[in-house]
Amino acid sequence: MGKKKESNFEESLNRLQEISELLENEEVGLEESIKLYEEGIKLAKFCYTTLKDAELRVTELKKQLEENIKQ
């Protein structure tokens, strides 16, 4: 569940980047621009709150497989 949210963040941020580049490009039509902007604002909100509320998680990997690797 958490993983999904995380990759969503990356995808959202990438999409936001993409949208900002598309909007900078004058060739995008009016309707398209407005659609992109609306999508972008949603993504920006999502990214902002996700990042704002984030807390670093630390997991220690148990070396249960270590023996397998050694052989």
């Binding site: 941020l13 936001l16 980047q17 949208i19 900002s20 909007l23 900078e24 004058e26 995008v28 009016l30 621009s33 407005i34 902007y37 972008g40 604002i41 920006a44 990214c47 902002y48 990042l51 704002k52």
Partner: peptide, 22 residues
Amino acid sequence: LFGFISEFSYHFEGKIIEIISN
């Protein structure tokens, strides 16, 4: 990242207005 996100919100609001007026 916060900078980028808020730049999107602010800069592109103006941008969209600019596009519309164009």
